[in-house]
């Protein structure tokens, strides 16, 4: 799943390790999420949303929803 985590992190000048520390997860987890290799669980997605002060759907893009919108 695509997301704008890297952008949000860069805006705050946080490293992957900084973000991982704040969420209590490994740096590898953040890297896997940013590169789209791993989709986080709802609790972790909510934690990210809370941390960045954005709704989940602004951070994570639903590729199927975009396909539907384009078709309409």
């Amino acid at each position: 799943m695509e997301n704008i985590l890297r952008v949000l992190r860069a805006e705050r000048k946080w490293s992957q390790a900084d973000l991982a520390e704040q969420l209590g997860v490994s740096r590898q987890s953040i890297n896997a999420i940013e590169t789209g290799k791993y989709d986080p669980s709802l609790p972790l997605a909510f934690s990210l949303a809370r941390l960045f002060g954005r709704p989940i759907e602004e951070i994570f893009k639903d590729p199927e929803a975009e396909t539907v919108e384009a078709a309409e």
């Binding site: 209590g24 997860v25 490994s26 590898q28 987890s29 896997a32 791993y38 986080p40 972790l44």
Partner: peptide, 9 residues
Amino acid sequence: ETDEFTRMM
């Protein structure tokens, strides 16, 4: 106890 991604791996 570890995080969900590490647990999965």
